[in-house]
Design a protein around this nucleic acid. Structure first.
Length: 481
RNA sequence: GGCGGCAUAGCCAAGUGGCUAAGGCAGCGGUCUGCAAAACCGUUAUUCUCCGGUUCAAAUCCGGAUGCCGCCUCCA
């Protein structure tokens, strides 16, 4: 099976051929650490986490690098505003980032360099570009000259002349071309700075990724990823400066994920509709967000709204219930393990979907198909099927795991909801259990009217009851607020 | 002004030339139940925004119309 990857630079799916057979070098632009992360950051993290997981499951030896931008204008602004050292701003939000990512089940990349750890390498790259005539120094500010690089605009598909005509570029008299971008910003009062042969200052934004990606992954490397908005100018500029310096190709495959809208509106700080990951997690299990994103193709925009999230939440529970039933069906049974051809067939289709530019939405459909298949077998209550159930369940878990799903257990999935709900409603579990006991008594004496009254009373409080062979259990009705 | 994307059932959403148009949610029918609920099973688009065209064959390709959206400025 050949993996195909959509390459932004060509605008089409291409066969994936790694630089070194069996290995994949993956670089993804991380976050600028000046605030808590929102669910848009989560999409990028989850998309590339899934790509990382899948490539590894295919047997590739993957080196995954994701950076932290820990020096930039926004960080400095925050440090002034809150009157704390800029280093502390970075430290604080790196920690916040890790809390969020760990909660979301996003695997740690192999390397997570910070911009400030590689200032020396950036200075060397700027010197190189000045030497080669691709950069010029004006009063300590060093700019990259876009006119000196023939292929400028290749990635984003914008001819130079038209971009200049675009007129939305801030005109800076110092620049030779309005599109020239800063490699190095001259030292200013109250800002961090590093000494360099061309004058003290701090690096521009794009230079760090050029340095860190090639340093850890070589040149060229396989996949460079990030949000769609980074295509221009960030990645275009990274590409220009790197290729101008090395004279070689920088990246083979450019992969960009689409954006997140909220209620059909762009999520942005100015509109004030950003949803932080930590706020989302107060309401839903982290895998709800993952399943939501993976239900959409990574390149499409997605619309976040309460209705859809509740639907996804229900769907996620379905997968957990299937696993629970499959496991219960095996308890106390002895059987010989054997493979189950239908499950293998589904696993094959799953891989084909993932090989087709990481089509997680299609891949998910096979997981649900397998879920249904398992349920059918369990439902038959046929002892001889136990071995098949066991092997189908193993495949089911393996596929889900490749997408980062079913990493929790059902009890934890449900208990989170219960705790949240009870806290909000202002009563505790003992109240619910007391009411359930009363109802059990009423039912024993066949006083069904009273039993139903208790059930209705709890239902009004968002608690639903389930009379199971193991006794009466309770759950939270979804979307009760 | 320039560049690009999207339009598929009540909702979300995959599918880019040809088997019965995935999957999820909701709905409906059933199993179960004191009745329910949950869970599970079954079922739900002769049709893919509209109009032309290419083709033996199009949701899929081409042209046009309409609507929605993104990027071009920091942004995942």
């Amino acid at each position: 099976m050949a993996l195909k990857v959509y390459n932004t630079i060509s605008g089409r799916k291409e066969d994936f051929v790694p630089v070194t057979e069996g290995k994949v070098k993956l670089y993804v632009c991380g976050v600028t650490v000046y605030d808590h992360c929102h669910i848009g950051h989560a999409r990028s993290a989850i998309v590339f986490d899934t790509i990382y997981r899948y490539l590894r499951s295919k047997g590739f030896d993957v080196t995954y690098v994701r950076n932290f931008t820990d020096i930039d204008d926004k960080i400095i602004r925050k440090s002034h505003a809150e009157n704390i050292p800029w280093q502390e701003v970075g430290q604080k939000y790196i920690q916040s980032f890790y809390e969020d990512m760990d909660a979301l089940g996003v695997l740690r990349p192999d390397h997570e360099p910070r911009a400030t750890q590689h200032i020396g390498d950036m200075i060397a790259l700027v010197e190189n570009l000045i030497e080669k005539g691709h950069a010029y120094n004006i009063g300590g500010d060093v700019y990259f000259s876009v006119d000196s690089f023939r292929n400028y605009g290749q990635l984003s598909g914008r001819p130079l002349e038209e971009m200049v005509a675009g007129a939305r570029v801030e005109v800076d008299e110092k620049k030779k071309n309005p599109l020239d971008f800063a490699l190095w910003k001259a030292s200013k009062e109250g800002e961090p700075s590093w000494d360099a042969s061309f004058g003290a200052g701090r690096p521009g934004w794009h230079i760090e990724c050029s340095v860190m990606s090639t340093l850890y992954l070589g040149n060229p490397f396989d996949i460079h990823g990030g949000g769609k908005d980074l295509v221009f100018p960030h990645h275009e500029n990274e590409k220009a400066q790197t290729e101008a310096a090395t004279g070689e190709k920088f990246v083979n495959y450019w992969v960009h994920n689409g954006f997140v809208n909220i209620d059909r509106e762009k999520m942005s700080k100015s509109i004030g509709n950003t949803l932080l990951i930590r706020d989302f997690l107060k309401e839903y299990h982290p895998e709800v967000l993952r399943l939501f994103y993976l239900s959409n193709h990574y390149r499409s925009p997605v619309d976040y709204n309460g209705q859809t999230i509740d639907d996804v939440n229900t769907a996620l529970h379905r997968l957990y219930y299937t696993r629970e039933r499959a496991q219960e069906a095996q308890i106390g049974k002895t059987f010989e393990v054997r493979s189950y051809p239908q499950a293998e067939e589904i696993a094959k289709k799953f891989a084909e979907a993932m090989d087709d530019d990481f089509n997680t939405a299609a891949a998910l459909s096979y997981i649900f198909e397998l879920s249904k298949e398992i349920n059918r077998m369990v439902e038959k209550k046929d002892e001889s099927a136990t071995a098949l159930i066991a092997s189908a369940e193993a495949v089911f878990e393996s596929l889900a795991g490749t997408l980062g799903l079913l990493g929790d257990n059902l009890e934890s999935l449900e208990s989170r909801e219960k705790i949240r709900h009870l806290t909000r409603m202002g009563f505790d579990a003992s109240f619910v259990e007391g009411a359930i006991n009363d109802r059990v008594e009423a039912r024993k004496s066949r006083n069904f009217q009273k039993a139903d009254e208790i059930r209705d009373m709890l239902a009004e409080k968002g608690i639903m009851l389930l009379d199971t062979p193991k006794g009466t259990q309770w759950r939270i009705k979804s979307s009760v607020s």
